[in-house]
Structure formats: C-alpha cells, structure tokens
C-alpha cells in the first residue's frame, strides 16, 4: 500500500515544488500534474540514440529506476516496510550507490564533454555525501538500537525527540541538506536552468530522449520521494495507533519536506561549484557532531 502510494505520488512532489517557487516569484506556475503528462508523452515518443553509445546508455536509466524501486520496498511508511531485515540500511545505501554508478556511466557513454562535466560533479558530490548519509543513519541506529529502517521507524518518534531533541534536530538538518545535494536542488544544482555548463544532474541526461528520458524523470521523482520519505519515516514518524492515520501523517510530512525544498529554492541563490563540497561536507560534520553527542 505505502509503496503504491510512493509510485503514484512521487511525480506530484516536483509539481508541488514548482508551485511553491512560482508563488514566491509571483507567477501562477505550471499545473501540479504536469510531470505526469510529461511522462505520458515521453513514453510514447521515439528515441534518438547517439551512434557513440553502447547498451550501457539505456542500461543506466533502467538500473537506476529498478534500484530505486527496490529501495522503496525497504522504507517504512505508516507501518513497517515490505521487506525488512537487520542491515537493510546497508542494502538501501548500496542501491543508491548503484544508481549513481549506473547514471554516471550512462552519461559517460555519450562521449560528450557536457555530460562528462555533469558526471564528474556528480561523483565528487556523491563521494562526499556518502559518509554523510552513513553517519546520519548511524546516529539513528545508535539512538534506536535497530539495524533496519523499519526498526528505526518503530522506535523513533516523539519519545525519542523528547529524549534527544538536539541530536534529532542535527540529524534532520543533515538529512535535509543531503536531500538537497543528492536530488540536485538549489543551492547545489539548479533543476530549472538551461545552461549546460552549470548543471549537474540535468546535463548528465542531455542525450536521453523518449522513453529513456521518461524512466530518468520518473526515477528522479522517486529519488526525491525516497529522500523525503527517509526524513518523514525516520526522523518524524507518527505512532498514533491507527495505521491509516500514521500513513496519512507520513505522506503529509513528505509533502512538507517538498514544501521546504521549494522554500529554500525560492529564497536562496546557487552556490558556486567551489563551495558545493563545503556544503556537502557540512552535512557530514553535523551528523558527526550528532554522533559524538550520542556515543559520548
């Protein structure tokens, strides 16, 4: 159930962020459901495949999407996840690394300097973000003594907040910063720009078209959903006793996170590429601080 919800609602987040930004810019903005229409249209289109490319070019998006779907089975929402076992956190993170590996190679497959540029930025940010994600999840592991995402979900919540509020705030901020970085949002990347030289994620998929682009667009919507869901389920879970209410609350928090992303994008400028490592490093530093507070 919660997984189906993710599959259907993920593209809505992008629409919501756009509407928030449009509101701040004094514009009406595009329809909330625009991404759904875009996907439907892209799927029906033909593709243009560069003569330089190999099967890696299509395998990249395919593996990314499938890995993210697998990730979705591991995250709890309103109830424990479909699959749960000690150490599923590590599989979750391994799959995210696989997404990066696949996307980057698909970009390098085109032999384009633009896409190489995007790929290079992606791996640099990814390599720095990785410790951040591990450490922030480690804090939650220590706090809840659970080795699975569902376990953390079950033991996190108001009680934990009252016991270790500061730690949770730090973890929440760190995870939010990582969400911005990993999903190519401002201030790390600008998803709206049309300037190849400044992009990260968008420039890596410059040559994908038609159904392959649909797969990529949907996968990035899912990635944003998953990132927001992590915050929602692990940091702000609801345990009201009613599964439906928990589910509703969880989804609500996901949309609140998207709202916050929109707010950040509306009110801040992009960082210079030189400053991005510091931004990502900051999230690792916050997680580390939280971790020291916990294990001291």
């Amino acid at each position: 159930m919660s997984m189906l919800l993710g599959l259907f609602l993920a593209p809505l987040l992008a629409g919501l962020i756009h509407r928030v930004k449009a509101f701040f810019a004094g514009r009406q903005g595009r329809p909330l459901l625009q991404l759904y229409w875009d996907l439907a249209r892209l799927v029906r289109k033909h593709m243009v495949l560069s003569r330089t490319t190999t099967p890696v070019f299509l395998l990249g998006p395919a593996l990314s999407l499938v890995s993210l779907l697998a990730c979705l089975t591991l995250i709890p929402l309103g109830g424990p996840a479909l699959l749960r076992f000690p150490g599923d956190i590590l599989l979750f993170l391994g799959l995210l690394a696989l997404v990066r590996f696949a996307t980057v190679l698909a970009a390098m497959d085109t032999g384009s300097s633009f896409e190489g540029m995007g790929a290079s930025r992606e791996v640099a940010i990814g390599a720095l973000a990785e410790p951040g994600i591990f450490l922030s999840l480690a804090v939650l592991v220590v706090q809840t003594r659970a080795l699975s995402l569902s376990g953390i979900w079950a033991r996190s919540g108001p009680e934990l907040w009252s016991r270790a509020g500061l730690v949770m705030v730090l973890v929440g901020i760190a995870m939010f910063l990582l969400l911005l970085a990993e999903n190519s949002r401002i201030p790390v990347d600008d998803p709206n720009t049309h300037l190849e030289l400044t992009m990260i994620h968008e420039v890596m998929v410059l040559d994908h078209s038609g159904p392959a682009l649909a797969v990529i667009e949907y996968a990035s919507a899912l990635k944003l959903w998953i990132g927001s869901l992590l915050l929602s389920s692990l940091v702000f879970p609801l345990h009201s006793g009613s599964a439906w209410l928990d589910l509703l609350g969880g989804v609500g928090v996901v949309f609140l996170v998207a709202l916050a992303v929109g707010l950040v994008e509306s009110t801040s400028a992009r960082l210079s590429m030189l400053r991005v490592p510091q931004f990502v490093g900051l999230s690792s530093a916050l997680s580390l601080l939280a971790l020291f507070l916990v294990i001291r």
């Binding site: 930004k21 701040f24 810019a25 004094g26 514009r27 401002i186 201030p187 600008d190 709206n192 720009t193 300037l195 400044t198 994008e265 509306s266 009110t267 801040s268 400028a269 992009r270």
Partner: peptide, 12 residues
C-alpha cells in the same frame, strides 16, 4: 539573479 538561481529578483 536568475543565473544564480535567485528567483525573487529574477522574476520581479
């Protein structure tokens, strides 16, 4: 402003 992704000034 738009180039650095700063929306308020860009759209105004």
């Amino acid at each position: 402003a738009g180039d650095v992704g700063y929306l308020p000034t860009a759209s105004f």
